[in-house]
Design a binder for these strands. Sequence first.
DNA 1: TGTTAGCACTCCTTTGTGTCGAGTGCCAAA
DNA 2: TTTGGCACTCGACACAAAGGAGTGCTAACA
Lengths: 346, 346
Amino acid sequence: MAETLTDRSQKILEAIIEEYIATAQPVGSKALTQNLGIKLSPASVRNVMAELEELGYLASPHTSAGRIPTEKGYRFYVDTLLQVSDLDRRQKNQIEQQYGQHGLQMADMLREASRTLSSFSNYTGLVMVPRLKVTIFRHIEFVKLSQRLILAVFVTQSGLVQNKLIEIDEDLTPRDLEQITNYLNQTMIGLSIQEVRARVVSEMTQEKALYDHLLRRAFALSSAALVDEITGDIIIEGTSHFLEQPEFADLKCMKRIIQTFEQKSILVDLLDRGLETEGVQVIIGSETEYSELSDCSLITAAYSGKRGTLGTLGVIGPNRMPYSTIIPIVDYTANLISRLLDTDKD
Amino acid sequence: MAETLTDRSQKILEAIIEEYIATAQPVGSKALTQNLGIKLSPASVRNVMAELEELGYLASPHTSAGRIPTEKGYRFYVDTLLQVSDLDRRQKNQIEQQYGQHGLQMADMLREASRTLSSFSNYTGLVMVPRLKVTIFRHIEFVKLSQRLILAVFVTQSGLVQNKLIEIDEDLTPRDLEQITNYLNQTMIGLSIQEVRARVVSEMTQEKALYDHLLRRAFALSSAALVDEITGDIIIEGTSHFLEQPEFADLKCMKRIIQTFEQKSILVDLLDRGLETEGVQVIIGSETEYSELSDCSLITAAYSGKRGTLGTLGVIGPNRMPYSTIIPIVDYTANLISRLLDTDKD
DNA sequence: TGTTAGCACTCCTTTGTGTCGAGTGCCAAA
DNA sequence: TTTGGCACTCGACACAAAGGAGTGCTAACA
């Protein structure tokens, strides 16, 4: 019972899952023996299916329907049965071509990645914009908008531009600002934002800063400019693909999902989870721990720049997703983005 | 026939349209005389309704259903029958509060505007990001990313930050860049981007520039930096509200609309049309001239900064929209945004 | 002991039928 | 010009019957 499945059970489970992924219809014993490669009588298959249902890998919507995979079934399939092949050269080229037309600007690239993920998978593409704290400082610039209002524009190594409005309570002359700018740009270049922040904190407490008015203000400004956004941003493309999925034909449930997307915060959390993990990660249904997404699965992978992980990207769709084709797409896209972010930027 | 409608006909048409907007159900003669303020017998109403149908203001889905408004009906309603009231103080406050929590950064404000439009109207909010050419130059900064790659960061008067990667074919020293930056920031401040471009073109041909290598390069860089984006960007919020509309229960048609939204270009075109117009504009169904949106209507208004129109914003929903409540919301939001963009920025 | 054929059973899906009722158009009377 | 009356149309809904796919169980077979 609790021991591992026999070879035969695994074959049958695999066939059922793949058939269900392809057709979205419950799979019966007859279909398995006729069209799929199972060389057994329907009766024997039924025995195995009953056993698999007993063990929780399959479920039947009602007595006289076939079986459909449970989450446990998908999980076992993804972990054990699935063998992912690499993309062939042609597909890789096709994907790569999408980026050719654009400039090399990071924001454009990330958007294109989300589009590509969506259009090549036929599901919904997700790309998380790098959190400020993991990016590398390259340049900061303060633009004075009014007496008390300064716009800090901040460029990361990879060409991502972030900006933030800062209110100040004492006037700064253009000369002050220029000095501060120069100081920061010379001191902080090449550090990660986390390091920059640490540095600012430590230097602010040092003796020198206490007496140097300008330095104090420089640190105040930069720490205001580099306050991390609390919530990350993500780029979602291809929501409309959800409307094609028969499992979401119910408008009620459809709406819940789309609203979840609009809200973004849940997706941010899910993508965040992939930050620590190497390679492609699959989150199935209730593993998301959000009831809104209990019928959705995510396939994610982290992408990185020169100095470690920057963010994650992936695809979200129904549990019934063709994992074998999408996993390589996500994997390749993450690698491609990592490669592109490393190129030509210094 | 072709002459104007009688007073009574107009009353009945108005009642039908408002009832249909409220219920999404075809309106029959009985309902009109019983619950709505029509003091006539059902039979008389039927005569009028037949006449209105003849004239093209109403249609009947089938013999034994009530009547529903046609596009012509809505158009007449919006142009002639509708009287829009102002928002009351409470609603204005509610809307205004949404902006309080955010910084004053333009991008945030525009996103919030789209959200607010959506949540107060219960339809989908649209906000067009100002086109580069209508914005006012405030500051430009060049960040050298590599030998041949420069990131131009460009700040407009209203605090919008745009950036663009530029490839150059001759190396520029940091010193060169600094001089160019200073020159441009001093020369161009306060001009609209259109004016900046004109100026660059004219100065480039002047004698002085021909001999001053640095000047030439400054102009080359700035014209590269200020190439207008071909296609504008828009911020869409609340797509999920479309899923609530009974008229889009059909997934097929739903999907077409959502895809149109994802693609954005059509919406950009529709919002562009509002740029020249004063006040609130209503586009109904096929007036959009896009078959994908033949069942959708837009309510748009332009917003502006100190120096004229910046962009448009609005709401998109089914033809059957409560125009009387949404028009003031769009109108007020456009004014509010215009006001906020004018404040505190210089 | 594992496999298979047969069979009764379940339950969803589809199709068809009949009823109900809302709404219409038209006509004749007020 | 307005109104009541009336026959008619047509979709919505409920219900029943037929059809069929798939199951579980049992008994026979290798």
